[in-house]
């Protein structure tokens, strides 16, 4: 009752984002295609071509097969991060969109659900285009690869919800550069996107193993290449579900606190 009662109002927050996005969707889709296409050409084909002797290190794969799916996981993190920092800050402080929404029957919970619904939609389109690119490079193995779409969305929800929770506590945008430098960039570089964690010194391996992006990369790679390890896959999935659930709870709490001064 309570839950279904939240979805219709949340859908209007989603609708508002769609109204803005529909003016630029083709641009967004175009860049969504161009970015992985260029990355895979440069690093997969160009750089990967030099790594043929190291196939063993990449689990017997061509480098581009290792890189492509990992890049999708990293892209989910980046898109979620971008959409959940400055735009959310703008709606809290500068543009005051949430203040306007909250003077209607909408509540902060509807806002959180609507924004996450929107992020989910954006990530689903990003993942779908990404899969097209991966298929062009002959990286996708079977239709099971389509399951990478919901996993990408789940990954994005975890990052998005956590960052909405963080943004709701910030009074200016200084904290963002800190987050980008010390959280997002290290995760991007050291979470098994570009090279296997076994290349890292042992303590760093443990640290990387604890990060959400590692689990997302493993799961998405397994699905796209159809090499899922049935022993570890449920753990990766469980990690991502818990990450998202904790993030949503924090986002809900922090935004409610922030908006009720």
């Amino acid at each position: 009752m309570q839950r279904s009662g939240s979805l219709a109002p949340a859908a209007r927050v989603f609708l508002r984002n769609w109204l803005v996005y529909r003016r630029i969707w083709y641009r967004s889709l175009f860049f969504g295609f161009l970015q992985p296409f260029m990355f895979l050409t440069a690093m997969g084909v160009g750089l990967g071509g030099l790594l043929v002797a190291s196939r063993a290190a990449f689990g017997g794969l061509d480098y581009i097969h290792f890189l492509g799916p990992g890049l999708l996981a990293a892209t989910a993190m980046q898109v979620a991060t971008f959409e959940s920092t400055y735009p959310i800050m703008n709606k809290i402080m500068w543009g005051r969109n949430y203040e306007a929404m909250l003077s209607t029957p909408l509540g902060t919970r509807h806002i959180v659900l609507g924004e996450l619904g929107w992020i989910g939609f954006r990530l689903a389109t990003v993942a779908a285009i990404f899969l097209v690119v991966l298929t062009i490079f002959r990286i996708t193995a079977t239709p099971i690869a389509l399951l990478a779409v919901p996993v990408t969305v789940l990954t994005g929800w975890g990052f998005s919800a956590s960052l909405i929770a963080f943004t709701a506590t910030q009074r200016n945008d200084l904290g963002f550069s800190w987050i980008f430098r010390f959280v997002i960039n290290p995760l991007f570089l050291f979470s098994g996107t570009f090279f296997p964690l076994t290349q890292l010194p042992a303590p760093l391996q443990v640290a990387a193993w604890a990060t959400p992006l590692f689990h997302a990369a493993e799961l998405i790679r397994g699905l796209i290449l159809n090499r899922l390890d049935p022993a570890t896959a449920p753990l990766h999935l469980l990690y991502l579900v818990v990450f998202a659930a904790v993030g949503v709870a924090l986002a809900d709490r922090n935004l409610a606190r922030r908006m009720r001064a």
Partner: peptide, 14 residues
């Protein structure tokens, strides 16, 4: 209720 806040919060993107 109808509310006209002291500081405008129109949606700048619409």
């Amino acid at each position: 209720l109808g509310v006209v806040p002291q500081i405008d919060n129109l949606d700048q993107e619409l």
